[in-house]
Amino acid sequence: MSDNWLPHAEYVATLPKATLYACFFVTDESERPIQLRAAWDPEVWQWPGGNMDPGETPWDCAVREGLEETGLYFAESPRLLGVHFLTEREDWPALKVGLVFDGGRLTEIQIRGITLDPDEHSEVAVRSVEEWQREMSEGAFRRLAAVAEARRTGVACYLQQTDPV
Rank of each mutant, 00 (worst) to 15 (best):
G139R: 10
Y21S: 10
Q160A: 15
E56A: 05
H84L: 09
W132L: 04
A22Q: 04
E76L: 14
E31Y: 07
E10D: 14
L95G: 04
E10I: 08
I111L: 07
A38Y: 04
V100N: 02
Q133T: 07
D3F: 04
R151L: 13
R142F: 03
A39D: 02
L80A: 07
I109T: 12
H121Q: 09
P7N: 10
A18K: 11
E138V: 11
A140K: 06
G104S: 01
D60Y: 02
N51G: 11
R79G: 08
R79Q: 15
L6Y: 05
V126A: 09
L81F: 08
A145W: 08
E130Q: 13
V26D: 00
A75V: 08
E76C: 11
V165S: 15
W59F: 02
V126D: 06
I109F: 05
F85W: 09
F24T: 03
D60T: 04
P7G: 08
V97Q: 08
W45T: 04
R64G: 02
S77V: 12
H8I: 14
D102F: 01
W59H: 06
R64M: 05
V147I: 15
W132G: 03
Y158P: 14
R89G: 03
A62N: 02
G82Y: 02
G50V: 03
A38W: 03
